[in-house]
Structure formats: structure tokens, C-alpha cells
Nucleic acid binder design. Structure first.
Lengths: 341, 341
DNA sequence: TCAATAAAAGCAATCGATTGCCTAAAATAA
DNA sequence: TTATTTTAGGCAATCGATTGCTTTTATTGA
């Protein structure tokens, strides 16, 4: 199957005995073409099945109408929703998206950044991998003059545009709700502390406990419990304690919460009566689980839209951008049966 | 914030008093450069923070190492998994992905095709929108000499590479399983019949019924029940019939199955004893629902990988490509409690 | 009818990397 | 030392579209 040669503006120009520049102007609504010839050119281009070569156009104009997105996994609900939100806005603007997944690996993240900078994308949007240690590759993006927007999982120290969830408040609200329901020994399932989001959620948990004068018990804080399996394991450990918790805040995800719920069920512990469970990120299965799982919705699609709007500098009304280019999106506590005594 | 001018091979050449061609050769491991100067060039490039401009390179070589993907929705489990699978392979090959969503709109799908052909991507991978009517935009891709791979939802009549699920067999297997469980009046929730996948699933249903000598009852076949809500509505109608079904095959999705399950629960109808329910596509909530939902797994990540391998002409062992460039992936019936009497 | 002005079209450089071809320099052989 | 072969590096065209500038043509006014 040989690649047939594609039609260029030169072909059109030759056929019509015109100069390529006129063809270009006609196709781009630039001035200096009579209406008659413009019509003729457009008609001929159509007939010859001409398609602009955006690669050439981009090289010339230096503007490639493409935005790069790097996420840990494309197929995770939160990220795919954010991407869908971004796409919704960028599509309207005629931009396309180049998507890469870092697979939670810093090394691969660096390669993704390289690919995108080589392509001279107009902007890079990133949520860093769990493996994230060093931000020099991100600084490099800025050195190349490419606008950088971080979202959700960010390198705090870098001065870039950021779209964040207010994780701390959300966690605080969730824990306060549990306390209001009468839970006192509230365990925390926490995620890798090199990621800002998990640090913030932990901070919210601690603040809520402090505010309501509840003791923070170190053995109730479980590190690195951010998958369903790890959540289950952590829960098993917790429930075997001499003084087990009466509630679990799975700050990492609903998956961890689900793991906890399954272990509780298996151990014949009543949720929410004996054990309250709260997750994070409002996965679709939250309403289906029995009992349904209290969680926090991150407004992921809105987040995606906001990110794109931030780039185009046209935020929705109601979205406020701080002076240092940070947008904070308020997550929403969704109270369901798993924490309602 | 002004765009700092980026370093080019000319800058490197000037600095070293060399010709750009030598720089290019050094960077690309082409011959005709002494080891000493090559080292020097590489070092200098590094120091000057040089990044190749792939736009320029692509224009010259006509090969842009980019693959375009068009799906109805990025954030649907099946599609995001397929994309993740594609990405896994293309990343290894140094290709990047440009992703577009058609939003189930034919009009938008056409625009996506245009964007991608303009970018001269190396290949276009598509699963058509529900709104799909006419395949001229797809033919146009081929006219432009761009390899086209269709997957899952395809235009049958077009002669392109295709990666498909064997929907008919899977549906047949599912319905046969239900029959074996003793269900006799099996209803079908069907999707838009302009999509091949729903036609095939219906065909599988019909074949299974015929094979086991069960009558096909028209009033048990519900059109267009392909969301949770539509599935619920259809189920409500079905269960109010004088002679209601004793099982429902939600051939459209697990979402429809879930809708059915909720209606049954609400009407106090025992699943699976009084009503068997089988879904399609193995959504994550299938195991969580009560009872857990029997479904069909489409091996979506494998499907994505296979698509990419098909493009690179390096299929995994065990994957066979038919002469007309079609790969069929065998879905897997996952039997859970919702159909186990 | 002719000059002055405006509109249309052409010319050629440009974006940055690649590559076939050619020349100069170095290495080898005679 | 000279002739021959390698090797290194330079030159310039090319990919296709865009765009500032110039020239030609058409239009307007006197």
C-alpha cells in the first residue's frame, strides 16, 4: 500500500495558474484575494480533496494548537474525567490533546515531558506520578517557554498555574461529619506522603481531630493504604487491635474504603453501627455498595474544564483565580449510609 | 511572559563553527561525523538545553510518529481501558497518541477525523459514534493514505483493519448459560441497531433461543435500553407485563443491568430466584452489586494492545489476524450470582 | 483620457531539521 | 613522496504553509 502523494497548495496553485500565496490567503480568509478567485480556490481545493498540512503550518507559525496532558493512568476514573473535561473546552477552541500516561513512574514521566516539549505543544498539563521526587523536568518545561499547568497532584514548590482540590477542607469536613455522628476512634488510611494531596488530607484529618478534642492515636494511622487490597490489609490490622477504631477514613480512595468494607463484612462487623467508613473520590460503585459509601466528590469534569479555561484565560464565572495562578475547587462531601448511625 | 527563543541546531552549529548538517547527524547517530565532534556536539546540545523540534523533523521526513484515536467518550471504562492498552504499546515504540472524543455525535466525529488527517498522523484508530450513519469520512482517511483501524463499533462495509469482539458468540454463550440455569422467558435489552455490536449481540441472543427451542417473544425485546435509566425504564415495563420475563439479558451494558437490578429490588422481585440478570462489559461495580452481576468481559486492555500491535504488524503470539486484516477477540463470560439460581 | 489610488496577485524568505551530493582533509598504499 | 582511498564535514535543496514586500492590474476621480 503506497502512500499516495497528498495535495498541497502548490498543486492547487499550479492547476489554477496562481501563486501558492494566494491559495494560502484564500484558504485562511486572509485579505488580498478577490472574491471570485477565492471562490474558485475553495472549490478547487474541495474537488482535489485538499487537507491542510498542519505540521507545515505549525512550523511556520510556531503555534501548534496542541496541548499535552500527562497523567498517571488514563483509565482511572478521576483522570479520565478530568481529561474529558479538558477535551470539552479545548475541542471548542480547535485545539487537540496529546495524552501520555506516566504509569506512576517518574522515569517515564520524564520521557513524556520530553516527547511533549519536542512537539512544541502549546501547553503541558500534568498530575505527577506517585513516584515523583524531583521537579527538574517540570522546571525544564518552563525554561522552554511552555506554559505549565499542574493539577491535583502537584509539586507545591514550583511556581506554575495550578488547579487543586481543597483536600484539607474536604478531609476536615468528612472527619468532622464522622465525629458529629458519634465516632471517636477514627482511623486514617493514608497515601504516599510525597504527594501533596495525601499530605493535605492527613492534615485535614489531624485538624478535625484536634478541633474536636479527640486524641490522635498513632496506631490508627495506616501508611500507604491506597488500593483496595492495601486498604483491606490495613483494615484487617486495625480491627485486630486491642482497641480497634470505630470508624475509618480512607483518605486515599473509595477503593480503599471498599476494601475496608469488605473486611468488616467478612469479620461480621456492622457498618455503620460498629464501624463507620468514609472514602474519597466518589467512584461509581459508591452507591451500589452495601451500605452505600460516604465519600468526597472532586468534581473531576469541572476540574478538567477549569484547567483548560485557565490556559485560555477564560474561567467560568464563579471560578476565582488567585494572584499566584492557583484555582482551588471545593470538593463536596457526599454523605451516604456507611457513616450514618 | 515572552516566549524565549528556543535553541536550534543552527545555534549549536554556530557556536561550534560547524555546519547544521553535522549537528543533525551527530544527534541522530547518522554517519559522517568523527567521534570527537560528535561527543562535542552532544555535550554542547546538552549544555544549551537543546530539544529537537519534532514539528520541523516531521515536516521533513513526513513521518510524525503520532497516532490518532477517536472514541465516543474518553471517560468510559471500556474506552479508557482500550486507550490505556494502545498507549502501552505505542509508548514503547516512541509514538504519541492524539485523542479525540466524538461525544457520540457524527458531526463531531467528522471534525475529529479532519483534525487528525490535517495533522498527518501515522494512523487513525476509531470506534464510531452511536450517531454514525455514513462512512465517507472514514473512506476519506484511506484516500489520504492514512492507515485506519476500526475497533469494537465499526463500519462493517469498509475494508479496513478491524479489531473486534466476538459479540455474537459472547451473547450466545451468555444466553445459553441463562437457559441452562432454567430461565425460559428471557428478555433482551438492546442498543441502537445502527451499531454493529448491538446487532451482533441481538443475533447471538436470537441464535441461542432458537438453538434451545425457546420462542422469541417480541414484547420481551426492548429497544434502545443502553443506559442505567433506560435499562430501568425498560425493566419496569417488562415486569409489569401480564407474563413478565424470568430473566433479562442487558446486552447493552452493565449499567443497564444495574438499572434492571435496582428496579427488581424496588419491586421486591428476587434476583436471581425470580429474575436472572446478565449485563455486558464487566464494569468494576459488577462484583459489588448485590447480588453480583453476571457479565461479559471484553478484555479491553488486551484489545487496545492488539490494536496497536496490529498497526506495528507485531501481534502477540496467540492473536491471529485474518486475511482481511480482522482480529477477533474472544470475550469472556463471567458468571456471578445474578444468574445463579 | 490620464493620473492617483486601491485591490489583487506574485515573489521570496522563513520556520528547523534532514539528506543527497560534493569537496576537503586525513589516512593508507604504492 | 605521490597517488589513492576513506572519512569528515560543508552546501544547498527540501518538506508545505505563511507572510512582508513588491509589482501588476483594476478602479476611481479629475
Amino acid at each position: 500500500m503506497k502512500q499516495p502523494k497528498r495535495v498541497t497548495i502548490y498543486d492547487i496553485a499550479k492547476k489554477l495558474n496562481l501563486n501558492p500565496s494566494s491559495v494560502s490567503r484564500a484558504l485562511n480568509n486572509g485579505g488580498n484575494v478577490s472574491i471570485a478567485t477565492k471562490q474558485l480556490i475553495l472549490k478547487t481545493a474541495e474537488e482535489m480533496n485538499y487537507k491542510v498540512n498542519s505540521v507545515a503550518a505549525n512550523l511556520r507559525t510556531g503555534n501548534n494548537q496542541t496541548i499535552g496532558v500527562i497523567v498517571p493512568h488514563i483509565n482511572q476514573n478521576f483522570f479520565s474525567n478530568v481529561i474529558a473535561g479538558i477535551e470539552e473546552v479545548t475541542y471548542q477552541k480547535g485545539y487537540s490533546l496529546v495524552i501520555c500516561q506516566s504509569n506512576e513512574s517518574a522515569e517515564r514521566e520524564i520521557k513524556c515531558v520530553d516527547t511533549l516539549t519536542n512537539q512544541h505543544v502549546s501547553c503541558i498539563i500534568i498530575s505527577v506520578s506517585a513516584d515523583f521526587k524531583d521537579s527538574s523536568h517540570l522546571e525544564n518545561i518552563q525554561k522552554q517557554g511552555i506554559p505549565l499547568i499542574q493539577f491535583d497532584r502537584v509539586a507545591d514548590e514550583l511556581d506554575t498555574m495550578k488547579v487543586l482540590n481543597d483536600n484539607e477542607s474536604a478531609a476536615m469536613e468528612a472527619v468532622s461529619h464522622m465525629i458529629a455522628q458519634g465516632y471517636k476512634r477514627i482511623a486514617l488510611l493514608e497515601g504516599p506522603q510525597n504527594l501533596n494531596i495525601f499530605r493535605q488530607r492527613k492534615a485535614g484529618y489531624l485538624k478535625a481531630m484536634k478541633k474536636h478534642n479527640l486524641p490522635v492515636i498513632p496506631e490508627l494511622i495506616m501508611e500507604n493504604a491506597w488500593t483496595k487490597e492495601l486498604g483491606a490489609t490495613a483494615t484487617r490490622t486495625l480491627l485486630k487491635l486491642a482497641e480497634p477504631p470505630d470508624a475509618i477514613f480512607a483518605s486515599t480512595s473509595d477503593f480503599a474504603a471498599l476494601g475496608a468494607l469488605e473486611v468488616a463484612t467478612e469479620m461480621n462487623i456492622q457498618v455503620p453501627q460498629q464501624l463507620g467508613i468514609c472514602g474519597y473520590s466518589n467512584e461509581s460503585f459508591g452507591t451500589i455498595a452495601n451500605p452505600s459509601i460516604t465519600t468526597i466528590d472532586q468534581h473531576s469534569i469541572l476540574m478538567g474544564k477549569t484547567i483548560a479555561q485557565l490556559y485560555f484565560n477564560e474561567p467560568d464565572s464563579g471560578i476565582s483565580i488567585s494572584e499566584n495562578q492557583i484555582v482551588s475547587i471545593r470538593p463536596e462531601l457526599i454523605i451516604r449510609n456507611s457513616t450514618l448511625k
